[in-house]
Design a protein around this nucleic acid. Structure first.
Lengths: 316, 316
DNA sequence: TCAATCATGCATATATTCTGCATGATTACA
DNA sequence: TGTAATCATGCAGAATATATGCATGATTGA
């Protein structure tokens, strides 16, 4: 879309490259063609007079100097973001456009209310919404296509690269419920422990996904290795599989079951209560920006609403 | 000449503007046309979505936000320079081109030897030499047309703006000698004090020049107000005036008298011994750059040579 | 009041920069 | 081992962005 002036577009491209280590993916994320990315990186090195990249196999990777350079850029860009934030605060002028990103459930439950609220409080602002996976959200933040993302916290975000570039705010912990076929032996129980389902066939997401990592973590804490029978990408698919009696699954509380009557949702009891942490992520340094602060406030308010609604339901 | 990638050319332009507060002068210093500068500044504000400039009379000036923004940029650019320096050190790759600036005497006595030396140690490097007044040297440094300048230290360099953007290294203190007509009553003395010349007509540089400030400072410390009879821009002109018997003057030791026989040069004795401090100036953060470090070492060596040569002459 | 100074806007000219395709190199797979 | 797939890059043409030069309006000083 629109590329904010920022430092230099070539430097922005380099930073995205440093997180993908892949010209084609960088091109896709930045919106350039692969040859444009290649040309930009080449031109950048020529102008700086420093070799940042070397060929490796059929790809390219950063040199030691390149990594050092990118690390330095991260600090500079953070300072730039802080400057933009303080300048916006000082002048009272907001950016013309504001991009939000998040995965499906977050987009529905948290981002949609936020966008609606901003549309009324800031009618002149162009608010953009992008649904994307967590990793992609981070890349979109980096390439300044969005300014705030709501994602599921995961181990991969503890890396130094991520820490140097982003700042997180916890919004809420979203527990995972068990979903059983309506005719399951435990369908009558009010709550079910994972131990009770240790031998059932499980339906989960593909390996290397954030959800799968949570799934595995919950069982490893019990010392149990679950039998993963099927893999699904969408919740609807998983629910359909469960309805067909192919196995059982875990569904975040925030995700709605939909109007399905051949499955039941039950609370998880026992020591291992899996949950996912939903966080808001912004570029490091942009925390002080008026739009960001306002958005975070609204998000936390919405999250609080969800939590208190749950406690109310809990008491019924 | 060539504009290094650096931050964004528009930001570079804004920084130069902040030191000139004048579109036309900014255009001249950056090498753009005035309308290009105007367009760049307008475009920058549009992209940032922040008003940096306001019209004032027939000119424009920075807003409060604009000044805040520029101050923040100074810090960022310093960090950028440090990053470039450390990357160059790490990779062992030097810049392709290296610009030196200085005023006439410095250019002759300090920069010429430096350039010559670099030409032998770094034959592949394109070394550029620019002769310019101190203030202009600073502007050239800022706009990255040169990378190191040798100038006379002055009061104007103690401003916060200058301190935020540049770093200085003292090279040598250059005493000012008295130049008298050959038939002057004191021409026979080995040294002359300023008190003895308090009533003579003086020839000096134009007001608001660095030299003039030194001149005034020397006399004010004596409580004497000298009679300034004439003003000259070049030393040659001043010497010619003195030779014609129009008055007396002060000439830095580094400046050569040339082959003139109708004037004499005498040491200044007494409490007020005027001297000018010659310093090397670089952009803040670039101190660690290999080329800068090498150049400063050579300059200090040359300065040391000049000083020791003087002590030797002193003993004769 | 006139001239000078200064910034800006516009049309044209000029550079830059991107895209799409072709190429060469490397890797995965059968 | 051969074949297909993947990946980065180079090149010609196209699209975009950017600068120039002159004209204009606004302000200041003589």
């Amino acid at each position: 879309m629109q590329n904010i002036c920022m430092i230099d577009p070539r430097i922005s491209t380099l930073r995205v490259f440093s997180s993908t280590e892949n010209v084609a993916k960088t091109a896709e994320l930045t919106g350039y063609s692969p040859s444009a990315v290649s040309a930009q990186l080449r031109e950048l090195q020529r102008t700086l007079g420093i070799d940042l990249l070397v060929k490796e196999g059929r790809g390219v990777r950063l040199t030691a100097t390149g990594r050092h350079f990118v690390a330095g850029l991260d600090a500079i860009v953070t300072q730039w973001e802080m400057l933009m934030a303080s300048s916006r605060t000082a002048s009272g002028q907001l950016q013309a456009s504001f991009g939000l990103g998040g995965f499906s459930t977050a987009a529905a439950e948290l981002l949609a209310p936020l966008a609606a609220r901003l549309r009324t409080t800031r009618p002149e602002m162009e608010v953009r919404l992008v649904e994307a996976q967590p990793q992609r959200c981070l890349d979109l933040l980096l390439s300044e296509r969005i300014d705030l993302a709501v994602i599921v916290a995961s181990q991969s975000q503890t890396g130094t690269l991520v820490q140097a570039r982003f700042e997180q705010t916890v919004l809420l912990d979203d527990p995972l419920d068990v979903v059983l076929p309506a005719n399951h032996r435990l369908a009558g129980s009010k709550s079910v422990s994972l131990e009770q389902l240790a031998d059932d066939p499980w339906i989960t997401e593909a390996e290397h996904s954030v959800y799968r990592a949570l799934f595995v973590a919950a069982f490893t804490s019990l010392g149990v290795t679950p039998h993963i029978a099927h893999e699904a990408v969408e919740w609807e698919t998983m629910i359909a599989f469960i309805g067909a009696g192919l196995g059982v699954g875990l569904l975040p509380r925030l995700a709605t079951l939909g109007s399905v009557d051949n499955v039941v949702r039950r609370r998880v009891s026992g020591v291992a209560k899996p949950s996912r942490r939903i966080v808001a992520v912004v570029r490091k340094g942009s925390m002080g920006s008026p739009m960001i602060e306002e958005s975070l406030k609204i998000l936390q308010q919405t999250a609080k609403g969800i939590i208190s609604q749950r406690s109310a339901e809990e008491l019924e």
